[in-house]
Design a protein around this nucleic acid. Structure first.
Lengths: 122, 122
DNA sequence: ATTTATGCAAATGCTTTGCATCCAG
DNA sequence: CTGGATGCAAAGCATTTGCATAAAT
């Protein structure tokens, strides 16, 4: 457990958003000037492998990461602002499992992203 | 409407699978040796812009394309074989719209992919 | 003719990797 | 001590782009 890994885990734990590797690198540099971007990428891959963090590949953007401590959830992306909103629906999850089962499959994992736009204020 | 564009549209219309740009290039070369990969990419982007085809970015793979003539559907990806299975669920679509609406959003488009494994045969 | 698409090669952007060094246990 | 992690620079891969040529209407 190196110092750079500790800093990265800390930054991800305290993050309220879903930063990408470059942004995370910037944040890590605050406490650890000189940390390499390669280390960020390498560490993120390692942490993902251990299930400590999740990687998301939203449309037309570089990979974004979040700490895995919160339970499972899916994402809505505001196409105008880029803001990411988390949400969760047991009903949808159940339906997904049913659909897969009907076709003879088990779900290993899934990905559901809603690209949304704020409703016009009436 | 150039010959290369016609070939590409034809190849996509007859495709039963979801080829990526390189595979499509290979298929196009059968009828049009010398067609450039850049042209394939450029044409695919143009066709996508016109809504003629759809682009999918599945996990850890290059973009894959399909003709848009079939109605809307989502995808299951067999993580062992890479096979892509199409499916559709109005109930899930409705739930998604409801969830977005509850949070004050309209859905622009969405992406739902189930990464699955064939059920063990009992 | 004149606009638009093509082919080629070079550039891009994100991510990964080889290798020598450094740090942690 | 010694293996694994780091920093740097270079490579990789999918995709895009600049530009001169060629083809389409």
């Amino acid at each position: 457990m190196t110092r750079q890994r500790a800093v990265l885990v800390a930054k991800l734990a305290e993050a309220e958003d879903h930063p990408d590797a470059v942004e995370l690198h910037r944040r890590a540099e605050e406490e650890m000037p000189g940390i390499s971007l390669s280390t960020v990428y390498r560490t993120l891959s390692a942490l993902e492998g251990q299930g400590v963090i999740h990687r998301h590949q939203f449309e037309g953007a570089s990979a974004r990461f979040e700490h895995a401590d919160a339970g499972h959830h899916d994402h809505m992306i505001d196409v105008d602002t880029g803001e990411v909103i988390e949400f969760c629906s047991d009903r949808i999850e159940r339906l997904q499992a049913e659909l897969a089962a009907e076709l003879g499959y088990d779900i290993v994992h899934h990905r559901m992203e809603l690209y949304v736009r704020r409703k016009p204020t009436s």
